[in-house]
Amino acid sequence: MYQILSKKSLNPTVTQMEIEAPLVAGKAKPGQFIILRVDMDGERIPLTIAGTDPARGAVKIIFQIVGATTEKLNRKEAGEAIEDFAGPLGVATETQGIEKVCIIGGGVGCAIAMPIAEEFHRLGAEVTSIIGFRNKDLVILEEEFKACSDRLIVMTDDGSYARAGNVTVPLGELLEAGEEFDRIITIGPLIMMKFVTLTAKPYGVPVTVSMNPIMIDGTGMCGGCRLTLNRDGQKVTKFACVDGPDFDGYEIDFDEAMSRSRMYFDFERAAHKETCNLFAAQKEG
């Protein structure tokens, strides 16, 4: 069992937790992920690591309540424990030789983008961060980004906070104005990462995207997380769990990844509803 050391609600649908897992905390690097199960007979879900405190053996995770498992996780409080917590999995984000970086996070993806921005800041790189949310209520981690960014641009889709529009708007403006990034690193919804890649393409800036497909074991065993890459005119299959989660945005077949991510959509929606009903019934009873 792995104890929940702290719990904090970042917005109505996003929660931050610190889990006691000293071995994971000792090894984790920005960009890597863990797999957890909330309880016995539970589902295995991957979550990217949002930070560590090795001295306390703590691993920070930030998750959006989107399905049955995240719903159950969110009902746990500090002091309680979860059944399984394994990692760190995947390859850490490449930071070598990058002096000027643009970090683009969307929604809960900002939770993963933040430790990467922090790492670049710590390494002395010039960090521009662009973070986007649907509306004002969903804005998270603004202060944290401010602390590690040389320049921070906040966007909301509906204009209810900061600037209105998608993250691709300021990115396009910066690139058009002649800004030269060594790398753009983007983490968020697939559709956002696709359009960040398309926006950067005319300027030839390398784009790293962080993929989060459906997976089970996280060690390369099942192949469920496979992605198709278009590399030098050849189609190449890669596993997000062991080859990623970071990939070259120009190589990823985003449309296929989006289609695959919806494979169990109906099942997941029904399971989430059932879990919510279960909790509601428990509350009444």
């Binding site: 089970i216 099942c222 192949g223 296929e256 695959r260 919806r262 494979m263």
Partner: peptide, 15 residues
């Protein structure tokens, strides 16, 4: 092979 409904035996049996 990346269509929805294609599994490796490992994935199908693990599930």
């Amino acid at each position: 092979e990346s269509l929805k409904g294609v599994y490796s035996a490992n994935e199908f049996l693990t599930r």
